[in-house]
Design a protein around this nucleic acid. Structure first.
Lengths: 206, 206
DNA sequence: CCTACCGATCGGTAGG
DNA sequence: CCTACCGATCGGTAGG
């Protein structure tokens, strides 16, 4: 059976396979970009990680820069889907906010190394690639926007909405730098603490 | 006078000159590391920035890695000095805290590009260089420690001191990513907002 | 601090 | 997707 003849796989299966290989490359690249940085990661590193030869990634991506763009967009789209699912069905703005914070932390801390790449390799993204990534980034931020607006209207976010929002994202995104799974605080505890911090006018607090 | 003879400069002046060139290299490297990243910055970029030829920086530093270490330590020492000066003479823990936050923001946003290098190029620092940098970093964090402890004792920082501290640093350090001088909020306003956020049990708030 | 240089590595390509 | 390869660039050095 090792030498049994095989017809070429049907077109559909081929396409799926190619998609899988592409997805594998994106995942491997994401992990390497987070661990070593974009510039310090070589095409050879990425190829090795998925068991290809050094020239082969260029069959799937036309350049290293293109891989970076793909990683970022992949991360954003996964995050976008997760956030939309997280708030689906919720009505209360505070509940929505809590769900977004928790979900955001899960996205950047569990599995999806693609999102942190967006956070920490922005510099490496070429001018030409930026517009495309920004478009998806805007859609991600658009999920937060109405929730924060409602909170502000309810007087729960202080006067300066924009600065508060940026400080919040900073506090959350920085967690990638110090969080270690299994050590110290868990994701839910960190989320709770961050929410408490930003909703400090809460009547029932302490 | 253009061609007047000149004795070789006395040893002291030579040493000072060498120190100046070294300091110039550190400053130029810091700026480039922040703008382009450590890996994307070449020795030739740095040499160009101070008007040297490509081999000459190695007269002052034995490797590129050594320059990175020097930039980080320089940034930390300047920050340490600034923080000590900021709290000198203050008694009230809240006043000290406010002074530290304001000073920290000034350090990372004005002039000293060396400190952000520490924040965003940690990955690029070799294992061997780390111990030395960590030693100075610990001294920097030691300035915050007693102030935060006092605040916690006074019930002004919530229960979980460690997570709150890390969230605070995240919010502050992330400002480097979005702050633009002259546009939107100024440093003092951002500082005020961050302080308000983290001292939200304040009786006189709103 | 400059000149002149080197070995290694890297992103990318042709041709199958 | 592999083989074989190339031009460019980079960190670093010898010798002055």
């Amino acid at each position: 059976m090792a030498r049994s003849e095989r017809k070429p796989a049907p077109r559909k299966a081929v396409a799926a396979d190619e998609g899988n290989r592409r997805a594998e490359l994106i995942r491997a690249a994401g992990r390497l970009f987070v661990d070593k940085g974009y510039d310090a990661t070589t095409i050879r590193d990425i190829a090795d990680a998925v068991g290809m030869r050094s020239g082969s990634p260029f069959y799937h991506f036309k350049s290293k820069q293109d891989m970076l763009k793909a990683v970022m967009i992949e991360g954003l789209q996964a995050a976008l889907a997760a956030q939309q699912a997280a708030v689906a069905g919720l009505k209360d703005p505070e509940e929505k906010f809590r769900a977004l914070v928790r979900s955001h932390l899960r996205i950047i801390l569990e599995e999806h190394t693609e999102f942190p790449v967006l956070l920490y390799e922005w510099r490496a993204l070429s001018e030409e690639s930026r517009a495309e990534v920004i478009a998806v980034k805007d859609r991600y931020e658009a999920v937060w926007q109405p929730v924060l607006r409602e909170l502000k209207k309810a007087g729960r976010l202080g006067d300066d909405g924009k600065v508060a929002r940026l400080l919040l994202f900073g506090a959350l995104n920085w967690v990638v730098q110090w969080y270690r799974p299994g050590g110290g605080s868990g994701i839910e505890q960190i989320a709770e603490r961050a929410i408490e911090l930003f909703l400090c006018d809460k009547a029932d607090k302490r």
